[in-house]
């Protein structure tokens, strides 16, 4: 199974470890994956809303 690794700054890793403990995650990995999933979903959502807006403008439904 392909398991990519991402390099991050040591100080950031320590910050994330601390944050994951405060937030009650079982591991820093779980915390990071969750945060990244959420961030990616937000970006995708924003892109989709933008494409929908452009389509609605093209069809004359919004200004």
């Amino acid at each position: 199974m392909f398991e990519p690794k991402v390099k991050i700054d040591r100080a950031l890793y320590q910050t994330l470890t601390k944050a994951s403990q405060i937030a009650g995650y079982s591991s820093v990995d779980e915390f990071i994956v969750h945060v990244l999933e959420k961030a990616a979903a937000e970006v995708e959502q924003a892109q989709s809303e933008d494409e929908v807006r452009k389509r609605l403008q093209g069809l004359g439904y919004i200004e």
Binding site: E44, Q47, S48, E49, V52, R55, G58
Partner: peptide, 19 residues
């Protein structure tokens, strides 16, 4: 309306589904 549709149908479908 002489407007380009832009995206492929599949891409537009994904955007609409998410929306």
């Amino acid at each position: 309306r002489q407007v380009e549709s832009g995206l492929e149908q599949q891409a537009m479908r994904e955007h609409f589904t998410r929306h």
